[in-house]
Amino acid sequence: MTCAQTISDYGLRAIGLGERALPRADITLCEQVVLIGSGLIWNVYFAVIALGLGFFLASSIAFARNSSNPFVWRPAAFFIFVIRGSPLFIQFFLLYEAFVLLPKLGFDINLGFVEVTIETRWLTRAWLGATIVLFLNTTAYTAQIFYGALRSVPKGEIEAGKAIGMTKSQINKRIIWPTMLRLSWASYTNEAIFLLHATALVFFSSFPAWRQQGDALYFASYFADKTFNPFVPYPIIAGYFIVLTLIVIFIFGWFNRRLNRHISKNH
């Protein structure tokens, strides 16, 4: 079988397209590279959704944490403490078990004119359940980073905003929020990289890979088990992750330059 054939068979295997059966005997290097690469689709999917949604919730939780109303900041602080204080691995297990115990069939929500059925069994599937866990996890870490930056927004900038007659929400939106992002961007880049790496845990923790549609690490360990040779699949997946990490650093670096474009380069 040529390598082009392998790519068309297994290139999208991780999302269920192409050949059903995984290679069992006489595994070639090409098959390993292609299948592990196709598993990467999942890692990118988890990272993009969790980071994208987590960014907005984290911003609001950071503001909530900074609030002076104890009914607002205490829950925010508690959420951050629980998620940051416990291992992601345990969170995966815990929420998976919780999702499994939920009624299997789903709830019927009657909205008066239309009935919406929420299927809870999707929660036990990785594409939704694991995304929720990763989303909550990155939200808490990012909120803490943003909160730290929020505390160090210079007072003078806020007073300048007041002086030119900005309303409170204008100050929040146009001064505090952008400055907070600018100050925290380096740490946020780190968090994004950590989250990307955490996506490798999904199919390794409790979420079963449905029809062997797993992520990159799922296929890598599959090959390591089958060939009993860790020296091929793990370096392949390591290479893939290095490339992904460099892409993250590049994208975040571009955004960082955008955030800092008003700051003179001489400083």
Partner: peptide, 19 residues
Amino acid sequence: VRGIPDIIFFLFVPIALDQ
């Protein structure tokens, strides 16, 4: 360690050392 998830090392290093 910045580029590669730690879980990959945890899986790789014990087998590699053992072999």
